Computed example of a mutant assay.
Amino acid sequence: MHADIKPDNIMLVNQSQQPYRVKLIDFGFATSPAKIPCGAVIQALGYRAPEVMLGIPVTESADIWALGCVAAFLYLGYHLFFNMNEYEMMQHFVHMFGQPNKSMLQEGKHSKKYFWMRKGIMKHTWVLKTPPNTESEAEDTAAFLSLLKWMLCVDPIKRITPVEGLGHRFITMKHLPEDPRATEQRMADEFLTRN
């Protein structure tokens, strides 16, 4: 198994005499699939097979996945899964190809990074996790844009002052859900300053 198939590791042999002959290079990660520990992270992220991400024992078929990604890149002119983190890739896999089957998810050492088990009365179902703190992130972005709008006000008279800026909800973080530990710490600090 090559374990690192990507466009950087595919070269044209002799473009003038054999324009369609290519050669696979860089066998530094090549090994027998039996020697790859279950759950080991192999392959470049944009070319990583779903079974590698889930932590299922791999076979040479992971190289076929990577080769398919290279073929798509050559045909489309762009990477299918470029500049994504693992969760975004898994989300795209599910969107494009459907959810991995139940046995794959149960066998995968890393399945719980991407999916959670919904427990029902009759059966349990694997469900793709949603990105964390989506609501908080949206509120944080709205607060930042609000501050930015005031900072970049064309009319200098209406522009936010430094004192107003320090009191803005983005700076004070009043728009975010309060962490109970922060509340306890603040109360302790207030008690110490009073006494």
Rank of each mutant, 00 (worst) to 15 (best):
M1D: 03
A3S: 03
D4K: 03
I10M: 06
M11R: 07
N14V: 07
Q15P: 09
Y20G: 07
R21P: 00
R21M: 03
V22E: 04
V22W: 10
V22R: 08
K23I: 15
D26M: 14
F29L: 12
A30I: 10
T31W: 03
S32H: 13
A34M: 11
P37V: 12
A40Y: 15
A40Q: 14
A44S: 14
A44F: 09
R48N: 04
P50H: 12
E51G: 09
V52C: 04
M53E: 01
M53P: 01
G55H: 07
I56Q: 02
V58C: 12
E60F: 15
I64T: 10
C69I: 10
C69D: 00
A71F: 15
A71N: 05
A72Q: 04
F73M: 08
L74D: 05
Y75E: 11
G77D: 05
Y78Q: 14
H79W: 09
F81S: 04
F81Y: 10
F82M: 15
N83V: 08
N85L: 08
Y87W: 11
Y87S: 06
Q91I: 00
F93G: 00
M96Q: 01
M96Y: 08
M96L: 08
F97M: 12
F97S: 05
G98V: 01
P100N: 04
S103A: 14
S103Y: 07
S111T: 13
K113N: 12
M117N: 05
I121P: 04
H124S: 12
T125R: 13
L128Y: 02
K129T: 01
K129N: 11
P131F: 13
P132Q: 06
T134G: 05
S136A: 06
S136V: 05
E139P: 00
D140Q: 09
A142D: 01
A143W: 03
A143K: 01
F144R: 10
W150T: 02
M151V: 13
M151Q: 10
V154E: 09
K158I: 01
I160V: 13
P162R: 03
V163P: 00
G165A: 15
L166M: 06
K174V: 01
P177S: 07
E178Q: 14
E184K: 14
Q185C: 06
M187N: 13
D189E: 15
T193S: 15
T193K: 13
T193L: 13
R194S: 11
R194T: 15
